[in-house]
Design a protein around this nucleic acid. Structure first.
Lengths: 207, 207
DNA sequence: ATTATTCATGTTCGATTGAACAGTAGCTTG
DNA sequence: CAAGCTACTGTTCAATCGAACATGAATAAT
């Protein structure tokens, strides 16, 4: 795969750098200037060599028409906003506000359709330990109605928590995946804010 | 944020579409043709409007110099190759071959430095349940020597497994985070293939 | 020794392209 | 009703830019 000459690697690296910084591919003359070539043809030849080796793709005649193959092959990436840990009284409006950061991940590995409204919450406490969720885990949820057995972020009697949703003859209620926590049967109402579709854990110094 | 007119949204959508398909921003004349404008100025004005509203960034005079702001703000994204589940006798060479797919995730949320050599493995079995890892979880590992307490993929007596690394007076050994599994004390040697730095779980129909 | 490849210079050509200028029309706001 | 914004048309200009051609030199492969 890496049968590139030193110069070609340098040019490729410069291309990646440009696209990360400016979102834009450089023109042949910009490449020329960056490497101190006396001729623009030198840059053009390197681009042609990289294209021949399949590392980049170009479109004849068009300006700055350089795309890095590895980034095109990549699956679509979704940006998921992270709202703090689960807070009481979190409504639709509140979701828009308390943005804490972003997670970007490719759509395929988390198995979600583009267009789905997503958000993420950080797990607090150990009430879902039985479902292998622990303090600090980042749960990605989709805003849609939940089915029995789903892990959901739900608003129950004015407070929002992450629990497993159970629907049976007794109606809908929430079950903590930890024997030390009680089942939650709604007094007034239960509204599902989102259904867990994926999870990301970051291991710091110690897991 | 979304104080865009209908046309402006359409143009923005077209820009995103172009960059996803070709990795390239369209020229004003391509925008003109796509929307059936009779004048190229119409496209240019829409770009100017989008820039004024902060949705895109442009560079005066340069061809196709359109970058979508939300994608520039995004953190660097790393591509991690996924090798199947943990197989026996997996060496450096084997790593290069049995590629199964790719995970793309932003570098910040998994907390890893760019340049680190990364790979991912799918967890098989329940020997690490105590560390909240379960069947099907995708563990992201960095190729570097492990420290005591790290969860590592290690080659021990010719077989590779995912376990917690413990280094004490008795030397280095592996500990399963599940009381039903034995501790692994190496007979011949123990070589750490990678240290767990993050984990991604995908929830299918049922979690 | 010959050939191919890489890396480079110097120049020219024509197409692509952003930008500017001069208008027209509809629609909303004060 | 004037002012301002959106949404265009039609035209011109000059800078940008890819591409081609001629040429040369160093290195690796055959």
């Amino acid at each position: 795969m890496n049968n590139l000459t030193r110069r070609q690697s340098q040019v490729l690296e410069y291309l990646e750098q440009c696209q990360e910084r400016t979102g834009l591919a450089p023109s042949t003359r910009e490449i020329q200037e960056h490497f101190g070539f006396a001729s623009q043809t030198a840059a053009l030849n390197h681009l042609r060599a990289l294209e021949r080796k399949g590392v980049i793709r170009r479109q004849a005649g068009k300006a700055r028409a350089v795309a890095i193959a590895s980034q095109l092959r990549r699956e679509q990436i979704v940006d998921v906003p992270v709202y703090g840990s689960i807070a009481a009284g979190m409504g639709e409006a509140a979701l828009e506000q308390e943005e804490e950061g972003m997670v970007s991940i490719d759509a395929v590995t988390v198995g979600l359709s583009r267009g789905a409204r997503l958000f993420a919450l950080r797990v607090r406490g150990d009430s879902m330990e039985g479902a292998h969720l622990t303090e600090g885990d980042l749960v990605i949820l989709e805003q849609r109605p939940g089915r029995s057995g789903d892990i959901v972020a739900a608003l129950i009697d004015g407070e929002t928590t992450l629990k497993r949703l159970v629907v049976d003859r007794a109606g809908a209620w929430l079950k903590a995946e930890n024997p030390r926590y009680p089942q939650l049967h709604p007094m007034e109402g239960l509204s599902v804010q989102g259904v867990m579709v994926a999870m990301v854990r970051r291991c710091g110094v110690a897991a």
